[in-house]
Computed example of a mutant assay.
Amino acid sequence: MVDQNQPRCPHCDRKMNKWRVPLASTWVNDFFYVCFNDDCPYYVQGWRRLWEKQATRASYRCRLDPDTGKFSPLPVWSADALKEDIIPDDG
């Protein structure tokens, strides 16, 4: 189990946001921690990498599973994608 304090992104060292997992998802988690820093090198380089490897206009953000402590990519299709499900710090 990961410490309940806000973890930091391993790519940019910014605090990660709690993000509500969609109800229709196959993930069992209620939330993940996600880096929504638009200047994060992982996110910025993802646009180029996915275009070069798959001709896809998409990127990914760094996601942390609080149950396993593992980081993995969370696909996004725009800079604003998925931001509507950020859980406020007080919630």
Rank of each mutant, 00 (worst) to 15 (best):
F36Y: 01
P66T: 08
F31R: 00
W51F: 11
V2C: 06
D80F: 11
G91H: 09
P73V: 02
K53F: 05
L74G: 07
P75N: 07
Q45A: 07
D13C: 10
P41W: 05
D67R: 09
V21G: 03
D30V: 08
A79H: 15
Q54G: 10
A24G: 15
W47M: 01
P88A: 04
W27F: 15
I87S: 03
A24W: 11
I86W: 01
D85M: 13
W19H: 09
S59V: 02
V2I: 13
R63S: 06
Y60K: 10
L23N: 14
D30Q: 15
H11A: 13
I87T: 05
P88C: 03
R61V: 00
K70M: 12
R57D: 14
W27C: 09
N17H: 12
A24Q: 10
R20W: 06
L82F: 12
V34G: 05
D80H: 11
N29V: 05
Y60P: 01
L82G: 07
R48Q: 14
V76C: 10
Y43V: 00
T68Q: 03
K53L: 14
L74K: 00
Q4I: 13
P22L: 05
R48V: 11
M1W: 07
D38A: 10
K18N: 01
G46A: 06
T56V: 09
G46S: 06
D13L: 13
R57V: 14
H11R: 08
D89C: 07
D90H: 09
F36M: 01
V76K: 00
T56M: 13
R57W: 15
C40W: 03
L50T: 06
Y42E: 08
A24P: 06
G91A: 08
V76D: 03
R49N: 13
G69Y: 02
A58E: 10
Q54M: 12
S25R: 06
N37E: 08
A24L: 10
W27Y: 15
S78W: 09
D80T: 15
K83S: 10
N29S: 10
C9L: 08
M1R: 11
L82I: 11
V21H: 04
V21M: 04
R61M: 03
M1K: 11
D3C: 09
Q45T: 09
K83M: 07
K18C: 04
F31A: 00
L64G: 02
L82E: 14
Q4C: 06
C40N: 03
L23W: 08
P41Q: 05
N29R: 11
L74F: 09
C9H: 07
